[in-house]
């Protein structure tokens, strides 16, 4: 087990490094010049001379060979220094420190709701297969999977923000500063982020349960005279968990991806919006920093999920 975790950690590190190299190269392959963009932001742009541009390029270290730039950056990253953003004119690490809690909060709440609602509804649909509740769950889940996240967002804003005026459509307020407003502002973004993973988890739970309830050991459980509830939870659900957890792991990535859109649409200063701003302005350090952290989070959750299999199913052993 220990060697397994160690090996997986090393593998994860390799993946993360490859991701950073990929992002590093892609950012530099994009057309456009960040220094010119930076200079263009000043009012005095017309007066900037080529010498000044070259000086700026040297100041940001962009005149160095690519390999050295990358090594410098990764060396800094290991020490917690993610570079300097010429867009925001601050340290990227500080910027991420501000943005990360918002993103994690949104993601964590959306993920938890997806599990807490998706799993019970999947179980109910499977147990009451063929009834109206099964049809309802299945239809809603199919809609949830196919509805594009931005469409859900627009619809919510249109109905609850514009028509009914119940919820604010923009911005983020810490729930510690103003609980009610903070929660109100979170509702729509979280619904948007929840729809897809919740639907997927409900569907996966339903199909896994249906598969398991056909198994011989469920018939054995029935023959013991157990209650239907005990059979479904103790016997059937525990055997259905693995595909659900696997999908839940994939949904974590879907949620991070969705946040890029949602934070932009709802104007929430999180990592997703930071990444978009960085990308639009070719701010290398921001994009690299955000992607590095997301890559870390995703590989670590994947590792946790793989380890959890061993606790759920005793037949799975790691070597």
């Amino acid at each position: 087990m220990k060697t397994y975790i160690l090996r997986r950690l090393i593998q994860s590190a390799v993946v993360v490094i490859l991701v950073t190299i990929g992002v590093f190269l892609i950012m530099r392959m994009l057309p456009g010049d960040p220094v010119l963009l930076y200079v263009g932001m000043d009012d005095v742009n017309a007066a900037t001379t080529p010498e000044e541009i070259a000086a700026l390029r040297a100041e940001f270290g962009l005149d160095e060979p690519l390999l050295k730039q990358y090594l410098d950056w990764i060396k800094g990253a290991v020490e917690g220094d993610l570079g300097y953003s010429f867009l925001l004119e601050t340290d990227v690490a500080d910027e991420i420190k501000n943005a990360m809690p918002k993103t994690l909060l949104l993601g964590f709440v959306a993920f938890s709701i997806s599990l807490l609602i998706g799993i019970p509804f999947g179980i109910i649909a499977a147990v009451r297969r063929g009834t109206w509740i099964d049809s309802l769950v299945t239809v809603l889940a199919n809609i949830g999977i196919t509805a594009p996240i931005f469409w859900v967002g627009i619809m919510l804003i249109h109905v609850f923000g514009v028509k009914l005026g119940w919820l604010p459509t923009q911005g983020y307020t810490s729930v510690f500063d103003d609980s009610l407003l903070g929660i109100k502002k979170l509702i729509m973004p979280i619904i948007c982020l929840t729809v897809f993973p919740l639907s997927g988890i409900a569907r996966q739970t339903r199909s896994a349960m249906l598969e398991v309830t056909k198994q011989d050991y469920i018939r054995t459980a029935w023959s013991k005279g157990l209650t239907e509830f005990a059979i479904n939870m103790r016997h059937a659900f525990r055997n259905s968990v693995i595909p659900v957890i696997t999908l839940a792991g994939l949904q974590i990535r879907a949620i991070f991806g969705g946040q890029v859109l949602i934070e932009t649409v709802f104007n929430i200063p999180g990592m997703g919006r930071l990444a978009v701003e960085g990308l639009q302005n070719q701010d290398y350090a921001i994009v690299q920093g955000v992607i590095l952290l997301i890559a870390l989070l995703v590989t670590l959750t994947n590792l946790l999920i793989d380890i959890s299999y061993g606790f759920i199913d005793p037949r799975i052993r790691y070597s």
Binding site: Y217, R219, R238, N239, D313
Partner: peptide
């Protein structure tokens, strides 16, 4: 082989 619950 299949009549006992594998995770219990």
């Amino acid at each position: 082989m299949t009549s006992l619950n594998p995770v219990m």
